Amino acid sequence: MSELTTVNSNQVAVQGDAGQVMASKILELAADPNFDVDKLERLMELQTRETERQATVAFSTAFAAMQSEIPTIAKAKSGNGSNYATLEDVVEITRPILNKHGFSLSFDTNTVLEKADEKSTNDYKGYVEIVAILLHKEGHKEKTTLLVPFDYSGSKKNNPAQAMGSSVSYGKRYTLCALLNIATRDDNDASAAWQHKKITAAQARGLSAKQAKLSDADKDSFDKWLLDDFKIDAIADIPQSAYNYIDGQLTAKLNAAKELETA
């Protein structure tokens, strides 16, 4: 436990992790009309820096754990002569992992439109600025930005709205992958192999430990669910692609049981 120790009537020494103790002490000192205002301001600045440091450490720790769970994502769609992973696929795969580790993702967009010259076949030209923002529950955030010109390829050549929409989707996909350091691969036999790859022994032990905490009725229900929905009768046979979903369901069951106990 961190502490703030009063040295004399106008000095405070910080020991260890300041945290909430520091904030509480500052409020106490602020209520004292005899306390030096300049010293109080310096204490508040110190508390702010400490809070930001703790938030940064929490972000880095959670980010490392989160990244280890994000799989390589298949390039399941073709377009403009190349294969790519769709924004929908990337979001669907990463969202439960982000939530599990206390992250939320948002995007800011800024569109710049310019009237095209007379020789252009398009009514407008311009670009979209996409900003992907990754926020951790402790308050620290990171972001990345990409400028994307309007995409007038194919049937979009005479439709500025479609051209802008395509660029926004493209920008979100690329900034998201860059922000989370996501790798993609061609959707071939390796994709099928990933779908059938089983969870690791460590993951199986973790799920088994959670299952052991369930009531007998919930254990039976869980086993039946695995058999009915996944055609498996053992935790060790759970496919890697279903691990995060099943882990989330087990955690939800345990939390619901705890709420009933405390109600």
Rank of each mutant, 00 (worst) to 15 (best):
T5D: 07
N8W: 10
N10T: 14
Q11F: 09
V14I: 14
Q20W: 03
V21K: 12
L29I: 06
A30W: 08
N34C: 03
D36F: 08
V37H: 03
D38A: 12
K39V: 07
L40E: 02
L43F: 09
T48V: 04
R49P: 00
E52S: 07
T61D: 03
F63W: 10
A64K: 06
A65W: 03
M66K: 04
S68G: 11
I70D: 04
I70E: 06
I73K: 00
I73F: 00
K77S: 13
G79L: 09
G81L: 11
G81Q: 10
Y84Q: 04
T86Y: 05
T86W: 08
L87N: 09
I93G: 01
T94E: 09
R95D: 06
P96E: 07
P96R: 01
I97Q: 08
F103W: 11
S106C: 07
K115D: 15
A116K: 00
K119E: 14
S120P: 11
T121Q: 14
N122V: 02
G126T: 03
G126W: 13
Y127T: 05
E129Q: 15
I130S: 13
L134V: 13
L135Y: 06
K137T: 14
G139N: 09
G139W: 05
K143C: 10
K143T: 05
K143P: 02
F150L: 13
S153L: 05
K157E: 15
N158W: 06
N159T: 13
A161V: 15
A163K: 00
G165L: 12
S166V: 08
S166W: 11
V168Q: 02
Y170C: 07
R173V: 04
L176W: 05
L179G: 08
N181W: 01
N181G: 12
A183K: 00
T184M: 02
R185F: 05
N188A: 13
D189S: 06
A190Q: 09
S191N: 13
W194N: 05
I199S: 03
R205S: 09
G206R: 12
L207H: 01
K210H: 06
K210I: 09
A217S: 10
A217L: 13
K224I: 14
W225I: 01
L227M: 08
D229L: 08
I232C: 09
D233R: 03
A234L: 06
A236P: 01
S241R: 00
I246L: 09
D247W: 02
Q249H: 05
L250P: 01
L250W: 03
A252T: 13
A263W: 07
